[in-house]
Amino acid sequence: MNRIDRLTAILTHLQSKRTVRAAELAARFGVSLRTIYRDVRSLEVSGVPIIGEAGQGYSLVEGYRLPPIMFSREEALAMLVAEKLVEKSLGEQSSKFFKEALIKIKSVLKSSEKDLLVEVQDTIQVLKSDPSQVMNKSSKAFQAMLQAISEKKVVATTYVTFDPEQTTDRELEPVGMFHSYEQWYLMAYCRMRKDYRTFRLDRFSKFRITDISYSTAKHPSLQSYLDKVSGEQQLHQIILEVPDGSLKYLVNSRYNNGYVSEEKVGQVTEMTFMNSSIEGFVRWVIALGDMVVIKQPKVLRDRLDELLGEIKEMQG
């Protein structure tokens, strides 16, 4: 960030709070306290009415306001994503207030940014959201795909599939992205497969936006694609807790039951599955006996209790 941009950003930051400490500004912009002192002095010399109180920080004279702030293209797109996430993660009333505030912020966008948000509005969907896990190591791919969607550019990628684990190079025409079950997914037209595919963002090992443009007119909307997938298969997220000594018994059969990922937590491993059949999955789990614990969903635990009762009754 050059000095002019930093001075503008400091002034915007001062408007956002009643009092701002120099250390807070230094941490945000990654500069020394001496640099912040010099920048604030430059703003004062230029006529900005800044009040500095020892031990308190800086504040602007009451009533002083900047003219409307100009947002960058990336910042405008980030607001759209935030709106989608907040809609699913906050309560109805809080979500309403956030939307009203966002409308006021959007009102100061340039016409080109307003048009951009309208154009990409339907290419981002949040189906289910956990606010503590909405973004992970897929964030770089997310930004690249968001840019490609807004610019209608083909993306050259290297993608690693789950089962079997294979690495392929693909050219994709991104259509939209959606968030579900703690992951971001890309829906795109794959030029290699000559068909539409869904890709998990964190499984792209490489990605590069090319200069090749494509037309969205020939592609279905993200919503119509999601409706089609939902109609074909209703997936359930299932999490099993598996002690270390039992992992070896699940290795050969996990992929047949919708295995997605796993995470080491202390002396156990939490395994995540996506499966459309609660009945089929519970009958697999019951064969594992005392080697797993069902963490979620409750409907799976309830069905396991019922099935165990039915077995006991049958055996007299």
Rank of each mutant, 00 (worst) to 15 (best):
T198K: 06
T168E: 04
K84W: 03
R200P: 08
S246Y: 12
R34E: 04
N252F: 06
Q15R: 02
A22T: 09
D302R: 09
R283H: 11
Q56K: 10
G231E: 08
V155E: 07
I209A: 07
T198N: 11
F199T: 00
A144V: 09
A287P: 00
F281K: 03
N136R: 13
V108P: 00
S246R: 11
S42P: 01
A82I: 14
D195L: 14
F204I: 01
S253V: 01
D202G: 02
L109I: 06
K248T: 13
A287S: 07
Y58H: 06
I212F: 05
K114C: 07
Y255S: 05
H219P: 02
L308W: 07
F97Y: 05
L116G: 14
E182C: 15
Y37D: 07
S72Q: 05
L247N: 14
Y225R: 15
V45W: 02
K88L: 06
S205C: 08
G289D: 09
A144I: 06
A287V: 06
S129W: 14
L300I: 13
S16V: 04
I238F: 12
E263D: 13
V260G: 00
T198A: 09
V242L: 07
K228I: 07
V285C: 14
G52I: 04
S246V: 05
S95R: 11
I209V: 11
Q234H: 11
A9K: 12
D202P: 02
A23T: 07
L77H: 10
S111A: 11
E171F: 11
G266R: 08
V268L: 02
P131Y: 12
E232A: 11
S276Y: 02
R73N: 13
L250A: 05
M145K: 02
L77E: 02
N256R: 05
A188F: 12
V118F: 13
S139P: 00
K153R: 14
S213Q: 11
L85M: 13
I105R: 02
